[in-house]
Computed example of a mutant assay.
Amino acid sequence: MATITTGINAATLNGRHHKAALTVFMVIVVAHWAEHLVQAVQVYAWGWPLAEARGVLGLPFPWLVTSEWMHYGYALLMLVGLILLRKGFTGSARTWWNISLGIQVWHHLEHLLLLLQKLSGVYLMGRPVPTSILQLIWPRMELHLFYNAIVFAPMVVAMVLHRRAHAGATCTCAVAH
């Protein structure tokens, strides 16, 4: 039986396929970020009640907004993407990528906590709904806008620095000057 292989491993993912992998990853990240921004516009600019402000995809598929599995899956996807693509970064770009990764580790743990509460029916501090640790201080919508911003910002800095021609690069992401 023939084995089908893509020929993509960790070395090529962070080498000749790094630019393509980063592009796919960033499309996913920006689409998710846009969902949070649209939800904020729906609440703050258009005056929609929070229960009706579901972003773009949540309007036709309202279960997406309330699915802890979907939110956890995205947080896990972000974490895995940041880990898998990390080796392609060097120097100060790697430092900024690591900052994004560190923040995403926390964001992922918060989503894991929410998922475990949803599955167990036992909620943090006796709250009536699954609640993350920082959600004890900030409302969920605003907290996740904040989380996505503080993960995204250092990621963008890392990518800008990464695209500059640099010594030690193993990929083809750098823009020729």
Rank of each mutant, 00 (worst) to 15 (best):
T3L: 01
I4F: 06
T5D: 09
T5V: 09
T6H: 02
G7M: 07
G7K: 06
A11C: 01
A11H: 00
A11W: 00
T12Q: 01
L13T: 15
N14Q: 06
R16P: 00
H17L: 13
H17Y: 12
H17A: 15
H18W: 13
H18A: 14
A20D: 09
T23K: 04
V24Y: 07
V24S: 11
V24H: 05
F25K: 10
M26A: 05
V27Y: 01
I28K: 02
V29G: 01
V29N: 00
H32Q: 05
H32T: 09
W33R: 01
H36D: 13
L37C: 12
V38K: 04
A40F: 14
A45T: 10
W46V: 07
L50K: 08
E52F: 05
R54D: 08
R54T: 11
G55S: 04
L57H: 00
L57W: 04
P60C: 12
W63R: 06
V65H: 08
V65Y: 03
E68G: 01
W69Q: 07
H71F: 08
H71I: 05
L77H: 03
M78L: 10
M78I: 04
L79Y: 08
V80Y: 00
V80K: 00
G81R: 01
G81V: 10
L82M: 09
I83H: 08
I83D: 11
L84T: 14
L84S: 15
L85F: 01
K87S: 15
G88I: 05
S92D: 15
S92G: 12
R94M: 06
R94P: 04
W96P: 03
W96M: 13
W97A: 15
N98G: 09
I99Y: 02
S100M: 04
L101P: 07
L101K: 04
G102D: 09
G102P: 12
G102W: 10
I103A: 03
V105T: 02
W106P: 03
H107Q: 05
H108W: 15
L109P: 07
H111Y: 12
H111L: 10
L112T: 13
L114H: 06
L116W: 04
L116Y: 05
K118N: 13
L119S: 14
S120N: 12
S120F: 06
V122F: 05
L124F: 08
G126M: 04
G126R: 02
R127E: 15
R127Y: 03
V129T: 15
P130V: 01
P130M: 02
T131R: 03
T131H: 03
L134T: 08
L134M: 10
L134V: 07
L136M: 13
I137A: 14
I137D: 09
I137P: 13
P139N: 00
P139A: 00
R140A: 15
E142A: 08
E142I: 00
H144G: 07
L145M: 11
L145V: 12
N148I: 04
N148R: 02
A149L: 15
F152C: 06
M155L: 14
V156D: 11
V156Q: 07
V157F: 03
A158V: 10
V160K: 04
R163V: 02
A167K: 07
G168W: 11
T170F: 02
C171T: 14
C171N: 14
T172I: 11
T172H: 05
C173K: 04
A174F: 13
A176L: 11
